[in-house]
Simulated assay, not measured.
Amino acid sequence: MTGTKGAMTSARLAESMLELIQLHGYSGTGLNTVVEHSGAPKGSLYFHYPQGKEALGEKAVELAAEQFGSLVADSALDAAPPGEVVRRVIDTLAGMLTDSDFRLGCPVSVVTLEMGAQSERLRDACANAFESWIGPVTEYLVAHGRPRTDARAKATAVVSMVEGALIVSRAQRSIEPLRCAAQALAVLLDEGDEGDEGTEASA
């Protein structure tokens, strides 16, 4: 029971850190605010994260990676073509952005931009997060008949374009950049869909 309670407290702290990073950035998020936001007992933060803010930030980035990975997986449950899967993902992200009045961005890009040059630990966490999205998208495209090298390049473009579109959408307070990204990516991913079936999927 103690272990379960401790795991719940640790997760609550990470979830609060993630939400606050989205709202205020990494640098603008203080540990006292995280504890207050999470409702966790005082002193619990350093018990669960003895290495302090960087450790908690790393966990928040990992949590963000898991959440986005689940979104992609859920969007690809049926046999929809890759372009349609990307549209679904972007539609969900656009909804989250408008629901938050354009306040919530991708915490992984936020931490990368703020701390990538200052903390190797956080830079690595962000790099791992991006790779955790690029890798499965690559495998999904391979499963749809794309040669592996091409699939990897397109998966990298997908993640890069979606991340960039999120930033531009927040700046412009409009989901139009996300819509444009969805349209461009659908063309990129579905191009030659018929003809590519059966190509060197495991090359």
Rank of each mutant, 00 (worst) to 15 (best):
F68V: 12
R179I: 05
S16T: 03
R103T: 03
A40S: 05
E84M: 04
D99Q: 14
G95A: 14
S44Y: 06
T98S: 13
Y49E: 02
A11H: 05
G195W: 13
G3I: 04
F102A: 00
V85K: 07
E197A: 15
G145L: 04
G28C: 07
D99Y: 03
R146F: 06
Q118L: 12
E36P: 01
G52V: 01
A55C: 03
P177R: 04
Y140A: 10
C126W: 06
L122C: 07
I21R: 07
E114K: 10
R146W: 04
A127T: 10
G52S: 06
R88C: 00
G43F: 03
A129D: 11
L20W: 03
S75P: 01
G192H: 06
T2H: 10
A94N: 05
A55T: 05
K59V: 12
G192P: 03
E194M: 11
V111R: 09
S202M: 06
E163A: 11
G83N: 09
A182N: 07
T33H: 13
L13V: 02
E131N: 14
C180Y: 11
K53E: 00
K154C: 10
R88L: 00
C126N: 09
R121E: 09
K154D: 14
L97S: 11
T199N: 04
P136D: 05
T112E: 12
L166K: 10
S119F: 07
P81D: 14
S160V: 02
L23T: 10
E176P: 00
G95Y: 08
Q172S: 14
W133Q: 12
R179Q: 09
S70F: 08
V110Y: 13
T9W: 05
A65N: 03
A155G: 15
G195M: 12
A7M: 09
E120L: 07
A129T: 10
K154T: 13
T29M: 00
L188Y: 09
E66N: 02
T4E: 13
D101I: 00
E19A: 12
A153T: 11
N32R: 14
W133M: 05
D91F: 02
F68G: 06
L185C: 08
P81A: 12
H37N: 13
E62D: 13
V158L: 11
D99E: 13
L31H: 09
S132F: 04
V72K: 09
V61L: 08
H48L: 02
E62P: 00
E120G: 10
S38F: 01
G43L: 02
G3N: 10
T98Q: 11
A79W: 01
L20M: 13
A79L: 08
H48D: 04
K53T: 00
